[in-house]
Deep mutational scan, measured.
Amino acid sequence: HMTFVALYDYVASGETDLSFKKGERLQIVNNTEGDWWLAHSLTTGRTGYISSNYVAPSD
């Protein structure tokens, strides 16, 4: 899985979204569905959809 880092804080707007904080590391589970990616937070252990605009590759 690809690992990304959050560029900004994000508060989930629905049950399927994932809230995260700036600097949080996220593993991308599925990024084939446009701008919203299914991600797993390595910080909180939660999984949900994130906006690809809010993250950048961590490598």
Score class of each variant (00 low, 15 high):
His1Arg: 11
Met2Thr: 11
Met2Phe: 10
Met2Cys: 15
Met2Gln: 13
Met2Tyr: 10
Met2Asn: 11
Thr3Lys: 05
Phe4Pro: 01
Phe4Tyr: 15
Phe4Thr: 03
Val5Asn: 02
Val5Lys: 03
Ala6His: 00
Ala6Arg: 00
Leu7Ser: 03
Leu7His: 02
Tyr8Val: 11
Tyr8Asp: 08
Tyr8Lys: 07
Asp9Pro: 02
Tyr10Ser: 05
Val11Leu: 08
Val11Glu: 14
Ala12His: 04
Ala12Val: 04
Ala12Asn: 03
Ala12Ser: 09
Ser13Ile: 14
Gly14His: 13
Gly14Pro: 02
Gly14Met: 11
Gly14Asp: 09
Glu15Met: 09
Thr16Leu: 13
Thr16Asp: 12
Thr16Arg: 14
Thr16Ile: 09
Thr16Gly: 14
Asp17Met: 14
Leu18Ile: 07
Leu18His: 01
Ser19Glu: 06
Ser19Trp: 03
Lys21Glu: 08
Lys21Ala: 08
Lys22Leu: 05
Gly23Ala: 03
Gly23Leu: 02
Gly23Trp: 04
Gly23Tyr: 03
Gly23His: 04
Glu24Gly: 00
Glu24Arg: 00
Glu24Pro: 00
Arg25Met: 14
Arg25Glu: 10
Gln27Phe: 14
Gln27Arg: 14
Gln27Tyr: 14
Ile28Arg: 06
Val29Asn: 04
Asn30Arg: 08
Asn30Ile: 10
Asn30Leu: 10
Asn31Phe: 15
Asn31Cys: 15
Asn31Asp: 11
Asn31Ala: 13
Thr32Pro: 08
Thr32Asp: 10
Thr32Cys: 10
Glu33Asn: 14
Glu33Gln: 13
Gly34Asn: 08
Gly34His: 08
Gly34Val: 07
Gly34Asp: 09
Asp35Cys: 11
Asp35Gln: 10
Trp36Asn: 08
Trp36Tyr: 12
Trp36Arg: 15
Trp37Gly: 00
Trp37Asn: 01
Leu38Gln: 03
Leu38Cys: 11
Ala39Gln: 00
Ala39Glu: 00
His40Met: 14
Ser41Trp: 01
Leu42Ala: 05
Leu42Gly: 02
Thr43Trp: 06
Thr43Ser: 11
Thr43Met: 06
Thr43Asp: 15
Thr44Gln: 05
Thr44Phe: 03
Thr44Asn: 04
Thr44Asp: 03
Gly45Asn: 06
Gly45Ala: 04
Thr47Pro: 01
Thr47Ala: 05
Gly48His: 02
Gly48Met: 03
Gly48Ser: 01
Tyr49Leu: 09
Ser51Ile: 09
Ser51Pro: 15
Ser51Asp: 14
Ser51Val: 06
Ser51Asn: 15
Ser52Ala: 13
Ser52Val: 09
Ser52Gln: 08
Asn53Met: 14
Val55Tyr: 04
Pro57Thr: 08
Ser58Gly: 10
Asp59Cys: 14
Asp59Tyr: 13
Asp59Ala: 15
